[in-house]
Write a protein that binds this DNA or RNA. Sequence first.
DNA 1: ACAGGCGGGACTTCCCGTTTAT
DNA 2: ATAAACGGGAAGTCCCGCCTGT
Lengths: 199, 199, 199, 199
Amino acid sequence: MDKLARTNDPAGTRRRIVDAAYLAFAGHGYNATGLQELRIAASVSSGAFSHHFATKKDLGLAVIRDRVRTAVESTWIMPVMSAPTAVVGIEQVFETIIFDLEKSGSISGCPVNNMALELSSQDAEFRQQLDQIFLLWRDAISDKLKADLAAGRSRVSDPGAMATFVVATYSGAMAMAKASQNVQPLRTCLRIMMDVIRN
Amino acid sequence: MDKLARTNDPAGTRRRIVDAAYLAFAGHGYNATGLQELRIAASVSSGAFSHHFATKKDLGLAVIRDRVRTAVESTWIMPVMSAPTAVVGIEQVFETIIFDLEKSGSISGCPVNNMALELSSQDAEFRQQLDQIFLLWRDAISDKLKADLAAGRSRVSDPGAMATFVVATYSGAMAMAKASQNVQPLRTCLRIMMDVIRN
Amino acid sequence: MDKLARTNDPAGTRRRIVDAAYLAFAGHGYNATGLQELRIAASVSSGAFSHHFATKKDLGLAVIRDRVRTAVESTWIMPVMSAPTAVVGIEQVFETIIFDLEKSGSISGCPVNNMALELSSQDAEFRQQLDQIFLLWRDAISDKLKADLAAGRSRVSDPGAMATFVVATYSGAMAMAKASQNVQPLRTCLRIMMDVIRN
Amino acid sequence: MDKLARTNDPAGTRRRIVDAAYLAFAGHGYNATGLQELRIAASVSSGAFSHHFATKKDLGLAVIRDRVRTAVESTWIMPVMSAPTAVVGIEQVFETIIFDLEKSGSISGCPVNNMALELSSQDAEFRQQLDQIFLLWRDAISDKLKADLAAGRSRVSDPGAMATFVVATYSGAMAMAKASQNVQPLRTCLRIMMDVIRN
DNA sequence: ACAGGCGGGACTTCCCGTTTAT
DNA sequence: ATAAACGGGAAGTCCCGCCTGT
């Protein structure tokens, strides 16, 4: 009896779906999220839903492209690139994230990491998309380190390796933080990592 | 009249179920695994299944306690403890894991990490159990580092923090390895980590 | 390739489900009825079923509202209201019911009573809905008795109490008739009841 | 791990099962009660359970014979028989029941009536057993009325019919009381019934 | 007599994807 | 593009009864 009003707004509908899906997938996981849950959260009928995303996998890929990637770009890539040096950038990113987590009270983890671990062994296409994001992330840090090295602002000899290390340590620290619901692993790893890069 | 033979073997039945579940949960995830799949893999009737595990969650907790924990103990804790020094132990563990992964051809990730990321935000009990395993893991490394420090075999000033860092970096490197289906991140992170601990 | 023909007929589908459920719930009980049984009886897929009724309880409530209530209205309330006096109406209702039961051969009892006894202690919402029907039923008789009293066609001094008594005696007589598979209790109670009201 | 101690006590075991079953069957119904629930309530293993009752139906019949029948005997038949007259006995029974219900706070209905309505249309054997109890009940009242008539203590001309009427009205009033969770229907019907019998 | 493991299946609920219809 | 009905099947849970073993 509570019929939905009809509102022709393709872009808005699609955005509402992807928003709801990003929250749910990053929050409690892809497989633990039902489409009905998303339809309700996005206030979208099953017909409209299917029109925009033929399958759940299509939606998953769209979420990775439209939300997970941009999340990495806005929280990691852009801050690092616009920082004076890679080290400073990385430190600021960590501190921003730690600050936000402490404010929010609950730690739901890093979206890329969450989705990568859940979906990599489930579907090759998911795995590739997620791997690409890891690469983007790593390359951004690597490029910054290279620039620092060229400008004499850094003594890091292998920027590519160091970037991989930074991403890995952050991801693992966030995993531990999520399991313990405590930011301590992030703080600890940040400190040691800073020593490594500054050496 | 073609009744199925039956053999009262509670311990064996339970073990078959937990074995199948560990493989599946660590392999393609808890939520992506159906109980039907496990029943078939373990050759167990649904009645027998329910007798041993009332709910899927019960099974999940049993898998964590009986398999994930022991997997960490046998692949990490025992090798590190029985190595001459923590550094040597950690290096050997990494190399063993890298060797095994290259032999097997596919990288399904670290069971603790996989399950922690999937289940921590799904259920508090899961989260606590997984967090405990992280602690066990970290403490084993920390204890070894302390012993090394006391014996003058190490210059690591904060063993607890260093242990957290090792676990985090390993976990993150394994996540990247899983996403890229390549052991390179593990190698890279091992090298940098060794420099950090030895320096 | 042998896809099932489909015809969007929401009202019809819903009606078929409720019809089948009413027959089954009133016939052999709510808890003794499986949804599979209803799906087959109504020729409805489980998907269509879920679309109309999310849970069995939802269906139960719909059955009470859409069928049990109207059954009471058509077999009791309307006949009594349109009869010259309450006494005549009640007598006619009883006799119609007795006649129908004898024709059908088996006595499955009064739907309201059947469902009330089974479901009142199972769920508060069921209990309230069923209680409301008892009230409607009782009030219809009460109103008729009041009108008779005002018009001097009855000497019943407390119409409300008398209506309760009529409903109770009918319900109890029907319970006994169901247990004995014999209409005798209905006849007996009708006779005594008539003496009481006519006094 | 919480193994049950072994206690050879056949009579006690059986009684515990039947007790738990009577409470559950009369309380929330035969079909709504699982055997596992009863096993837990009676602290009985599945093996011991099966030893005493091969099927659920066997248990149901035992409950009717060993508990429902005796419940009717102790709450209705004996009090009426030992009362000075049928009228007084019936009045006392009603008042005792109303008093107990008000004390307990919730109305779960008359066990005979509850089980008769649920099981009569489900199984012929159940129906017969329940019908027999109705007969016993009715006959006890009828006999008392006959004795009163013979002794000049009553003007009831058809004791058998009157007994049927009393049982029916009580059953129906209790059904309404259960649905409304209010003893008022019992009070109301008692008053009118008393007028009828005394007239 | 009792403890518990087990077989096989039914239960309600929910899933994802498709189709009709406006 | 959007709303809603629908198909078909799988999900996890629980059912009852039997069997083995002590």
